[in-house]
Simulated assay, not measured.
Amino acid sequence: MPRLQIGTTAPNLTPTDVTGVPVPVRSAAGLVHLQFRRFAGCPVCNLHLRSFALRHDELRAAGVLEAAVFHSPAAELSPYADGLPFPLVADPGKDLYRAYGVERGVRALLDPRVWPTVVRSLVRSSGLVLRGRERPPAARPLGGRFGLPADFLVGSDGRILAAHYGAHASDHWTVDQVLALAAEHRTAPVARPAGA
C-alpha cells in the first residue's frame, strides 16, 4: 500500500460513523484530523482517544474536526462511541486503510517503546471493565491486533497538509501536535500562482 504524501489529494471516499452518518474527509469549516486506530476496545486507542475528548473544545476552537477510523464492524465499535464528541468510523473491510496506505505489523506491540503505554492503558481499561463502565475488547478482533496507527491533517481543499505513519501502536500525534500543525497551516502564506 503506497503511503500518501503531503500535498496530494486525500482519497475521495466518504465514510460513515457508527450510526451511518457521513463523515466528511474534507470540510469547508476547517481542517480535518483523520486518525487511524486499531480495533474496538483497544486499550491503547481508548487511552489516546480520551485525551482528544478531554481537549475537544480546544481542537474545535483551532478549527480542527476530529474523526477516528477503526478496522472493526460498527456493532463492535458503537459502544465505545459513547462519551466521545467526535465520530468513530467502522471500516471492517479496511477500504480507508488501503486508500491511505495504513499498515499493520507485529512491531505494533513488539516495539519496546510501546510497552509503557500498553501497561498504562491496560491498567486504565481493566479498572473500567471491572466497574462495568467499559466493555472488554473482542478476544479475536476483526483485522487482528497488529494494526499501526496513522494521522492525517486534511485541508478544506482536500489536500494532505501533514501525515504521520506510526512505527508502533502508541506512535501517534498528541493533541498538542495537532494544535501546533493547525496553527502552522492557519498562518502559512498562501501560494501565489506564477506571474501574479
Rank of each mutant, 00 (worst) to 15 (best):
V21I: 14
L59K: 04
G20W: 11
V64C: 06
P79I: 04
V69H: 03
A108F: 00
R107V: 13
G101L: 03
L54P: 02
D57S: 15
G83A: 12
A99Y: 10
V25N: 06
R55A: 15
L34T: 04
L34C: 07
P73S: 12
P85L: 14
S51Y: 01
A67E: 01
D82N: 09
Q35V: 12
A90Q: 11
A28P: 08
A90E: 11
L88A: 12
H48G: 10
V25S: 01
H56D: 03
G30R: 01
V69K: 05
C42S: 14
V44Y: 00
L77M: 10
G101Q: 15
H71E: 10
D57G: 09
F39L: 04
F39E: 02
G30K: 11
G20H: 10
C45R: 00
H71Y: 11
D57K: 13
R104C: 06
F86E: 00
A28D: 15
Q35K: 09
P92L: 09
D57Q: 15
L88H: 05
R60S: 13
V25E: 02
E103G: 02
R55F: 04
A68C: 14
L47I: 06
F70N: 00
A75V: 14
V32E: 00
A67T: 09
L49I: 07
F52M: 12
V89C: 00
L88T: 07
C45W: 01
G83F: 07
R104S: 15
T19F: 08
L84Y: 06
V32C: 03
L47S: 03
L84C: 11
A90R: 02
Y97A: 02
E103P: 04
V23C: 12
E76V: 06
A28M: 13
H33A: 05
V25D: 03
D95S: 01
Q35Y: 11
R26M: 13
L59M: 04
V21P: 02
S72K: 07
P92F: 04
F86Y: 08
A61Y: 08
F36H: 02
V25K: 03
D91I: 07
